[in-house]
Each structure stands twice: as C-alpha cells, then as structure tokens.
Deep mutational scan, measured.
Amino acid sequence: KELVSALYDYQEKSPREVTMKKGDILTLLNSTNKDWWKVEVNGRQGFVPAAYVKKL
C-alpha cells in the first residue's frame, strides 16, 4: 500500500473529508482525482486536498 505524509494541518469541512495534522502518515487509497485524494487516517476514510500531502 502507498503512504503519504501530511504537509499541513487540514480540518475537514464535510463528512466526506478527514482531518489530518502536519506530519501525519496516511494510507493513500485513491489518487485518480488531481485535486482530492482519498486516504485513511486513524481508521477513517475520506478525502484531503492533494496539494496538502506528498507521496513517501
């Protein structure tokens, strides 16, 4: 599985998104959309802005 690192804090703005803190390591589930990537963090799945994470 592919991992990404959070470059910035992000506070979810809808139920489809997830909150992350800078430095968090997230499991990348889907990166086909260039703007929003689906990740899993702390057992929750949702979307984060692609520009806020980088692949490890």
Rank of each mutant, 00 (worst) to 15 (best):
M20F: 10
Y52L: 15
P49N: 03
Y10M: 01
V39N: 00
D24F: 04
N33F: 08
Q11K: 13
G43R: 04
V39E: 00
G23W: 04
Q45L: 08
K34H: 11
W37Q: 01
S14M: 08
T27P: 13
I25H: 06
F47G: 01
L29T: 04
G43C: 06
K21W: 08
E40N: 04
P49M: 03
N42M: 08
G46I: 04
K22S: 08
Y10T: 01
E40Q: 09
F47Q: 03
R44W: 04
L56V: 13
D35W: 15
A6L: 02
K38T: 08
K54Q: 14
K21I: 09
A6Q: 01
K13A: 11
A50G: 05
D24P: 00
Y10L: 01
L56H: 09
Q11T: 14
I25T: 08
V4L: 12
V53D: 02
A51E: 13
K21R: 13
L26H: 03
I25R: 06
V4F: 12
W37Y: 08
D24I: 04
L29N: 02
K13L: 10
R16V: 11
E17V: 05
A50N: 03
K38W: 15
E2Y: 12
L29M: 07
P15M: 10
N30C: 14
T27K: 11
V48Q: 00
W37G: 00
Y10C: 01
L26C: 11
Y8L: 11
T19G: 10
K21P: 00
K55A: 11
A50I: 03
M20K: 00
Q11W: 13
R16G: 14
V41S: 11
R16A: 12
A6G: 03
N30W: 07
K1I: 14
P49S: 02
R16W: 15
K22I: 07
K22Q: 11
E40G: 05
E17I: 04
Q45T: 14
Y52M: 14
F47L: 09
G43W: 03
V41Q: 09
I25D: 02
T19H: 05
Q11C: 13
G23L: 03
K55C: 14
T19N: 06
V53C: 14
M20W: 02
L7Q: 07
L56G: 07
P49K: 04
W37H: 03
A50P: 07
L7D: 03
R44T: 07
R44S: 06
R44A: 06
Y52E: 03
P49Y: 02
S5D: 04
S31L: 05
G46N: 01
Q11A: 13
T19I: 03
K13D: 06
V41Y: 11
